[in-house]
Design a binder for these strands. Sequence first.
DNA 1: TTAGTAGTTAACTAGCCGGTTACTTAACCA
DNA 2: TGGTTAAGTAACCGGCTAGTTAACTACTAA
Lengths: 119, 119
Amino acid sequence: MTQQDRLSSTFSALSDPTRRAILAKLALGETSVTELAKPFDMSLPAISKHLKVLEHAGLISRGREAQWRPCRIEGAALKDVDAWLENYRQFWEQSFDRLEAYLTVLQAKDKTPARRKKK
Amino acid sequence: MTQQDRLSSTFSALSDPTRRAILAKLALGETSVTELAKPFDMSLPAISKHLKVLEHAGLISRGREAQWRPCRIEGAALKDVDAWLENYRQFWEQSFDRLEAYLTVLQAKDKTPARRKKK
DNA sequence: TTAGTAGTTAACTAGCCGGTTACTTAACCA
DNA sequence: TGGTTAAGTAACCGGCTAGTTAACTACTAA
């Protein structure tokens, strides 16, 4: 799969609130499908489909333990998103920098120079 | 619009390679619709639709200059994505941290303690 | 073997999405 | 005025998506 396609399927997978909620739950630890499905007013097959989408996007992986298929988060796909986003950081830190620059001008010159906001 | 919906429409907008390419071009500066459309083997109305999606997701905004509608990037929506992503950073820095910890153990104790990777 | 639990697959449906062509609107210019 | 350029709107089409129910697979346990 090309990098483009990978990013596309990752963003696509993340565009569904149910799937993001599943990820949020998985962030707390590995869980079974039924357990993941509990909070949702939705059939189990629907959840199963969502998990397949997440798995195909590389956002989760699934093991096997007796009759359970525990799911866990895989960070690699999210790392790609982070790397993509990095190219655009200037566009939301810009206004901050301008404000910062403005305040720097307003304030006394003997203050230490403003540092870039650390993420 | 709820925060959930906003994130959903942002991720959804970003899930199309054409739209990401448009953003990449806009990162170089404000541009007209026709100019944006040039690299794509696609009709102008198709581009117009993509721009509408990006605008609806808050990723771009459009001005008016005579018969041109210059487009520019809006950082706010991307900032939300970054904030969301931040909750998951551990999942792709984890292995790095483990390696770092391992190396720290291996190396001499008189080294300065390892710092978290700055983004 | 039988019953129960965990999960997937199949088949279907309604609605969205990304593209098209044809037409329209808006601003500039001769 | 009429012509040209820039862009948006309308109507349509095919394929994908997210959900459903029903049936099936796989493992556990009595």
